[in-house]
Design a protein around this nucleic acid. Sequence first.
DNA 1: CGATAAGCGAGACGGTACGTCTCGTCTTTGA
DNA 2: TCAAAGACGAGACGTACCGTCTCGCTTATCG
Lengths: 208, 208, 208, 208
Amino acid sequence: MNPVEVRNKPRAKSRRRRPHTGRARNEVARSAILATTLELLSTRSRFSVEAVAAHAGVGKQTIYRWWPSKGALVLDALIDASAKDQPAPDTGTLRGDLRALLVTTFKYASDPSVSDALRAGVTEAQVDVTAAEMLRRFVDGRRGAFRRMLDRARSRGEVPQTADIELIIDQAFGVLWYRLLMGHRPLSRSAAIALAEGLVGQITACRD
Amino acid sequence: MNPVEVRNKPRAKSRRRRPHTGRARNEVARSAILATTLELLSTRSRFSVEAVAAHAGVGKQTIYRWWPSKGALVLDALIDASAKDQPAPDTGTLRGDLRALLVTTFKYASDPSVSDALRAGVTEAQVDVTAAEMLRRFVDGRRGAFRRMLDRARSRGEVPQTADIELIIDQAFGVLWYRLLMGHRPLSRSAAIALAEGLVGQITACRD
Amino acid sequence: MNPVEVRNKPRAKSRRRRPHTGRARNEVARSAILATTLELLSTRSRFSVEAVAAHAGVGKQTIYRWWPSKGALVLDALIDASAKDQPAPDTGTLRGDLRALLVTTFKYASDPSVSDALRAGVTEAQVDVTAAEMLRRFVDGRRGAFRRMLDRARSRGEVPQTADIELIIDQAFGVLWYRLLMGHRPLSRSAAIALAEGLVGQITACRD
Amino acid sequence: MNPVEVRNKPRAKSRRRRPHTGRARNEVARSAILATTLELLSTRSRFSVEAVAAHAGVGKQTIYRWWPSKGALVLDALIDASAKDQPAPDTGTLRGDLRALLVTTFKYASDPSVSDALRAGVTEAQVDVTAAEMLRRFVDGRRGAFRRMLDRARSRGEVPQTADIELIIDQAFGVLWYRLLMGHRPLSRSAAIALAEGLVGQITACRD
DNA sequence: CGATAAGCGAGACGGTACGTCTCGTCTTTGA
DNA sequence: TCAAAGACGAGACGTACCGTCTCGCTTATCG
């Protein structure tokens, strides 16, 4: 399942002897809700929990039983969607890895349904603490993959000790989110490649 | 006053002979509304047009007469606030200019009241077309200042022809917005300096 | 409960097996709304749905869920209030019945809270179609009682065939509403008695 | 001119030495306002002062300079319209006079534009004190004509001393307003005649 | 197998805010 | 000095959602 999912409602009082009684959670409903969420986020109409419930053929309470707020639902849909995403390959060189990761990430984020979810996610996170925490975990996960890639390159001697890895990561994802939110320029493949090239130059320039 | 302001309601058909009749716009109300908007955005309570009207001692209609939506108001307050901002100095070198601009910009954006307005602005822009256009103009203005600085450096021979100026700008503002929205790391002075250093390295690395 | 009440929203498609789903209507809220409506109509301050909601401790939507408009609410409150009203007795003679009915009706309509509701009801009905229909039903109900009384007298031979019963009723209620709305003269007991006397004279004068 | 008109706004400060300065009152505007008021009351759209001003090509303040409130305007339009109404003839008999007066009055009140104004007038009077006073004067004027007619008949010996003239008048106008406001039956010529007949019967029945 | 304990679709509830409309007042400008 | 134009503070309108609370039902698990 999805380990990031919020599951705070049940388990209020810890009772040993009876771990669970009653009807089991309906997995069909769960995935219908998440799928509908992504779908409604894509159509640029106003997104509402009410609409998700109606469209997914589900009671509103079934949503609020498992997600504490609208923002949490949006973030969970986003996380759920990105779980299917496969990791970038290990090409053996910093330039190759960086290029592969950025191209993959830009391609993924520029898918209309994903980009709408990303936009909605960051929007909700500005208003909803739970969503903010979930977004933070999501972002940290993505940063982690990036960091592992750079650490691999460093162990191969391709990254000098003086290089500020976190700032490199900030620049990579910064461009992604900035273009996503402002829309002044697309998340194209060529942009990903140019960015990779620039960051390689920046990293190697640190050698001096 | 502010040239970016939305002024769509009056003046549908241009008539020569009578440029304006009726009571003039109340500038006191205008600035009270914008000031209150910034103030309410800073207090992390839910921001609403209703609250702005009440707090500014103004009728709700007076807001809607001049701003087509909540988002437009937020963006105008942001633009109005940033108009007071002074430009970064011309230091004569790429490194100096870049560092000065980034330090100034980060300092400005990390002011609590400004950062809340920036966050709210980008949030509203995701939902409100007018706000999106205004944000776009705001962002373009900022990018313009950055671009002029890089062009100056290029004319001094500090920037090679192969350097992708737009991408450099995206990286700079990308880090700003990314940290602002995710909050994983502050917009510190040292971060601005490190970023300037990295971008200088990236630009000069293009020489090869 | 009240058969005149508007109940248009639910039950679009008749399904046998599940006559009702979802939370049941809150009868406490319903009567609080109607009671508050009457109360606010009595205080001669401006009557508003917003005030009813606030004063009854109820959400505005709860009012609009059950009443299609302000006018419908006013009329329903009026109808609900008049349902408690008891019928006039059967005295055995036209003069007695007529006098009893008019005295009762005038007394009822001159109660300050009722008269304010009646005034508000007819006022709303001039602007609101639903309210107009409801007022019409209310008025028809009252006319019906009057007509049954006259029919009883006719079957006793006290009312000639030539008498225009509908016009008699119009005269009786006409005086009532006219005095209510213009306020030039009160709905006193003596006026009711004099009116009864006059109408008896008019009815028996038809014998010639 | 119209003696009933409210003229409270000017004359705020009594200055002797200069009985009149400035531009004289624009009679064209005055009648345009009243005519537009009647016209807008007839079209069953929502009637507003703003609409009257726009439609009459007049500033809103020009309306409020001469009429203290919306209700006063409505009532004045009503009074102005009914001033053109000619009096019923003196036929020499109670039956003839009564019939003539009722037929005339019903005919006048059933004119669509007049009936809409009457309805609006009584509606406004329920909410607006000035309108209420004006309606009262209007109603008293009409009652006066009726009363003079009955007094004439009484001096001819056609009306016994015991007859309650005010109640007779209440019945006549009561039927008018009641039908006007409830709309259950039209203000037809035959109804006027039947009512006249009934009231004659009622008056003469008092002789016993 | 029956009792108990959830989960579920449906939908009413108290609220908050939206963006619109109109009231009656105030102010500017041209005639 | 008047009148048109129109901005203003105020406040109600009716709608859209929020997140919560029932209702009557269905479905697991345990004793």
